[in-house]
Computed example of a mutant assay.
Amino acid sequence: MCSYTRKLLEEYFPDFVHNPYFDVRGEENVPRFQSLAVWLFKILYRTRLLTPFAIVYTRL
């Protein structure tokens, strides 16, 4: 699933991590937990730790 997601993001949204609109910190109607999830996803994607994180998370 992570490989598929990474492939889609790189194919259709190659610069999504640097896109200023891919940030929900300042939005009032977005719950805090979802803002944190978007932030965490961006960090894990940038550092190429998304797959290891998903493996550990699914084993909990």
Rank of each mutant, 00 (worst) to 15 (best):
R6A: 03
P52W: 09
R6L: 04
R25N: 07
Y21W: 03
D15R: 04
F41P: 11
P52V: 02
F16W: 06
L49C: 14
T5S: 14
R48Q: 04
F22L: 01
L9W: 00
R48K: 02
S35K: 14
K42Q: 13
V56L: 14
D15M: 04
L60N: 09
V30C: 08
N29P: 08
M1P: 07
K7W: 08
R25I: 11
E10S: 07
G26P: 00
I55T: 15
C2Q: 10
L49Q: 14
H18E: 04
F13M: 05
F22R: 02
R32Y: 13
S3T: 10
L50I: 00
V24N: 08
L60T: 13
P20M: 01
D15G: 09
T58E: 11
I43H: 09
P52E: 06
Y45F: 04
L8R: 06
V56D: 15
V56F: 08
D23W: 07
L44M: 00
I43R: 15
E11F: 07
G26T: 02
E28K: 15
M1Q: 08
I55P: 09
Y4P: 05
R25M: 07
Y45R: 01
F16C: 00
K42P: 12
L44P: 00
A37V: 06
Y12I: 10
Q34W: 14
R25Y: 00
L9N: 05
H18F: 08
Y12F: 06
G26S: 11
D15C: 11
Y4T: 09
F22T: 05
I55V: 15
L44Q: 01
P31F: 07
L60G: 13
T58P: 00
Q34P: 13
F41C: 02
R32Q: 13
N19H: 03
L8G: 12
A54P: 01
V17S: 01
L50W: 00
E11Y: 07
F33T: 12
Y57F: 06
N19M: 02
L60P: 13
K42L: 07
L60S: 05
F22K: 02
P20K: 01
Y21K: 08
F13K: 01
L44E: 02
E11L: 10
P20S: 04
T58M: 12
T5H: 06
N29T: 15
L9E: 06
F41S: 06
V24W: 01
Y57D: 13
P14D: 03
T47I: 05
E28Y: 13
R46F: 00
Y12Q: 04
R32A: 12
R25F: 05
F13C: 09
R59N: 14
E10T: 07
D23F: 03
T47C: 05
V24F: 11
S35I: 13
R48I: 01
A54L: 01
V17D: 04
Q34L: 14
L49M: 14
L60C: 14
A54I: 02
V38C: 05
T51W: 05
F13T: 04
P20G: 01
N19Y: 00
L60H: 11
K42F: 00
A54W: 01
Y57W: 11
M1V: 09
G26Y: 02
V24K: 04
L9F: 04
V24A: 08
F13L: 10
T51Y: 09
F33E: 15
Y45C: 02
R25A: 11
R59A: 12
P14Y: 03
Q34S: 13
L60A: 06
F22W: 03
F41W: 11
